[in-house]
């Protein structure tokens, strides 16, 4: 089964780190990706640019409404994601617990709903 790990981080934290701390942080994430890859569990992963660069769009009164900024204004924003392959929710949780985000943010674990389960042919 596949799981999406959504990484919520306080974006204000990163620029406050020293270059050495940033390098250490990056190395920790690279090591985590490498461990996932070695275990054959890594499907995809990316870091996202700051939420200030986000734009949302929806329809209001039949007209498109476009707003700058992320959907939800909160201290923690989605900073990146991993899509992993894991035999069950427990195993996905074990991977989530190893994610460096856990030290400074929040990791949400969501099972991916395979399209084959809700589409009729």
């Amino acid at each position: 089964m596949q799981y999406l790990l959504i990484l919520y981080v306080n974006e204000a934290g990163w620029p406050e780190l020293t270059p050495a701390q940033q390098e250490e942080g990056t190395a920790a994430y690279m090591a985590y990706s490498e461990a996932l890859r070695k275990a054959g569990a890594l499907v995809a992963s990316n870091r996202l640019r700051p939420s200030s660069s986000a734009t949302t769009i929806r329809t209001a009164d039949g007209k498109p409404q476009v707003l700058d900024g992320p959907y939800a204004e909160s201290r923690e924003q989605i900073g990146g994601y991993f899509i992993i392959e894991a035999p069950d929710h427990d195993a996905a949780m074990a991977w989530a617990a190893r994610c460096p985000t856990v030290d400074h943010g929040v990791v949400e674990v969501r099972e991916i709903w395979p399209m084959s389960e809700y589409t009729r042919r």
């Binding site: 690279m30 090591a31 985590y32 990706s33 461990a35 070695k38 190893r98």
Partner: peptide
């Protein structure tokens, strides 16, 4: 090997 050991640890 250090990378994988680091990535598998949940202890900062």
């Amino acid at each position: 090997a250090y990378d994988i050991a680091t990535g598998l640890s949940s202890d900062p």
